[in-house]
């Protein structure tokens, strides 16, 4: 990778300051995506601002109706937490591999908005709020496209707040090679109704499957799920899965999630 200046601030303010100084500075959280990208020289920041030194960003807080997860909390910590809704903990426990879960963070994953990442689906399906140093952003407004978010230049995610659902389940069909989500479907019964979010499949990143939500709102059973109305041309196709296959898998994964919720 190209060389860079390294900064390890101990507060968010210092992080913002460091971010502003570099010509092309980049934040690094767990680094599970950024470092491999830099190794391939596909990213070459002038300055790397490591959030690993900011203690405030780590931790899980149970707020009763919701749970707030600090941005630098690792997937492993989320997976092991009893304060976190079981569906979310299970999702975290199946991201990447054990070593990725020991380093990768929720804030990094959400900020990166990789179209094949798991967390964005949980944020959308559970109606999470992304808490930054500047504001609070509802998940529905946060994910704006593949690798794109509503975050401004010097905005840093502090935490993600998840309302606790009545029930939820995430089903992931893994890319056989990379183990990222080829299709991941998060189904949640929330106080705002049934929410279904799909990751891995959309050619514009994570999205909510409105037709499936409506069908499940009327009849929360696997048989109600039909993914055929999701336009094939809105879905990714690659060597591992054509858009048609992804469309089909969305249905299968959604049905399995509903079945799991219904027990």
């Amino acid at each position: 990778m190209h060389n860079f200046d390294y900064h390890r601030p101990s507060s968010l303010d210092d992080a913002v300051a460091a971010l502003g100084k570099g010509e092309d500075a980049s934040l690094v959280a767990g680094g599970m995506t950024l470092i491999p990208t830099m190794k391939q020289r596909l990213a070459a920041p002038s300055d790397l601002v490591d959030l690993g030194g900011i203690a405030d960003l780590v931790g899980i807080k149970d707020d009763g109706d919701s749970v707030t997860i600090g941005a630098m909390t690792t997937h492993a910590a989320v997976a092991a937490s009893s304060a976190v809704p079981p569906s979310l903990a299970a999702l975290a426990g199946n991201i990447g591999d054990a070593q990725v879960r020991n380093r990768g963070t929720i804030g990094g994953s959400v900020a990166n908005n990789d179209p094949t990442a798991c967390y964005p689906s949980a944020c959308l399906a559970l109606g999470a709020t992304i808490v930054t140093n500047a504001r609070e952003i509802p998940a529905d407004d946060f994910f704006t496209g593949m690798f794109e978010t509503a975050l401004e230049e010097s905005e840093i995610i502090k935490a993600v707040r998840f309302p606790k659902p009545e029930a939820g389940n995430y089903q992931k069909f893994e890319n056989p090679a990379s183990r990222y989500a080829l299709v991941g479907v998060f189904v949640a019964k929330t106080k705002d109704g049934v929410r279904v979010a799909v990751t891995g499949a959309g050619n514009d990143g994570v999205f909510r499957a409105g037709d499936i939500e409506q069908a499940l709102s009327a009849n929360f059973s696997p048989d109600a799920v039909d993914s055929s109305s999701i336009p094939v041309d809105s879905l990714n196709g690659d060597i591992h899965a054509s858009a048609e296959y992804r469309q089909h898998l969305i249905g299968v994964m959604a049905r399995r999630a509903v079945a799991a919720i219904n027990g």
């Binding site: 390294y6 390890r8 680094g31 470092i35 391939q40 070593q99 990725v100 020991n102 380093r103 990379s178």
Partner: peptide
Amino acid sequence: CDTSQCGACVVHVDGKSVKSCTLLAVQAD
């Protein structure tokens, strides 16, 4: 490998297994 997949580089940092090819030395300060 160069994509953090193979795990030949796994070491423990503060007792937890990590891929040392995906961690900067300065991050382990």
